[in-house]
């Protein structure tokens, strides 16, 4: 009986081997997926949309993590060694990556997703930037750039796995369609806010592209370090600034005590904005589980706070 079963298995395998070229187009379920490593959650979301079930995407910096700082884990090095493609944002966001890849000893193909995007100089100025960097790395906050991210990742994925070209192209086209609908949505929502009310005080420093692309002013609170306990001077400065510039809404992150934020809002008359996401997605079930959900969430929060 046992012998019979082994013989049967051997037969199956050899048939499988014979038919390999035919099977390549429609991969069986048991076959390992194409392994992709993305540096942080937003890039991973793009890759999942393009690859679908065909790929397995691992994000090095997971949801709610900060992509600027990263603590390497041994498992990540193992993932890198097996990866068929590694997706990076570039523009200096993943300063830690060079050392990680050197330590892993692996040489997987890399793609810089931000290639082909419109850049914004860290010094501000015109958009797209005319001078030579350094550029603000948070380019995905402009949906047009997100589309160019998706195109760059699609091209790289097809190079890494040419057999599934048609599948990647079809999924990529569908996702680009969703992104262009999202862009129209964002523009419509912002244009419903009168220009003089599009002013926000925020400690988030990752909305430079969003500000330029959709014409909102993001103003950093003066002289406030969000790490330390607040001083009376800081609070007084923020309140003065809001009153002087007639700023309708305040979005603060990292300020440990939301009682203090409520106090600032009450005293200055500015609305306190809800939670917005800039450089990491939330958990899948959270308000910003995917890139599109993240942008929708941010738009909802901004319009809620800025609508007259």
């Amino acid at each position: 009986m046992r012998l019979l079963r082994s013989l049967f298995l051997a037969l199956c395998v050899s048939i499988g081997l014979w038919n390999q070229p035919a099977l390549a187009q429609s991969r069986s379920l048991d076959e390992p997926k194409i392994k992709i490593v993305a540096s942080f959650s937003i890039l991973a979301d793009f890759a999942r949309h393009i690859g679908g079930d065909h790929v397995e995407v691992i994000d090095l910096v997971g949801p709610n993590g900060d992509a600027h700082v990263y603590q390497p884990k041994p498992l990540d090095v193992a993932h890198l060694a097996q990866a068929r493609l590694v997706i990076l944002n570039g523009l200096g966001l993943e300063g830690w990556f060079d050392r990680l890849i050197a330590a892993s000893g692996a040489k997987p193909p890399l793609v810089i997703a931000s290639q082909g995007s419109k850049f914004l100089s860290l010094k501000g100025g015109a958009y797209p930037a005319v001078d030579q960097g350094p550029y603000d790395p948070h380019a995905w906050q402009d949906v047009a750039n997100a589309s160019s991210y998706v195109r760059a990742i699609t091209t790289a994925l097809i190079e890494a796995d040419p057999a599934a070209r048609s599948l990647y192209e079809a999924r990529s086209q569908a996702y680009l369609g969703e992104l262009s609908r999202l862009e129209a949505e964002v523009k419509a929502a912002i244009s419903a806010i009168p220009r003089q009310r599009r002013r926000v005080i925020t400690t988030h420093d990752a909305f430079g592209y969003f500000a330029k692309a959709y014409d909102i002013d993001f103003i950093a609170p003066q002289g406030v370090s969000t790490d330390a306990e607040a001083t009376a001077q800081d609070v007084a400065k923020i309140i003065r600034q809001i009153k002087a510039d007639k700023i309708p809404a305040v979005f603060l992150e990292n300020v440990s005590d939301d009682r203090l934020i409520r106090r600032i809002g009450k005293e200055s008359g500015a609305k306190i904005g809800g939670k917005v996401f800039s450089d990491a997605l939330s958990e899948t079930k959270g308000p910003a589980g995917s890139y599109i959900d993240m942008m929708r969430n941010n738009i909802r929060e901004f319009t809620a706070a800025l609508k007259p």
Partner: peptide, 11 residues
């Protein structure tokens, strides 16, 4: 963080 109230945030 939770337990350090702030004298600046008295409602």
């Amino acid at each position: 963080h939770v337990l350090f109230g702030s004298v600046l945030a008295l409602d």
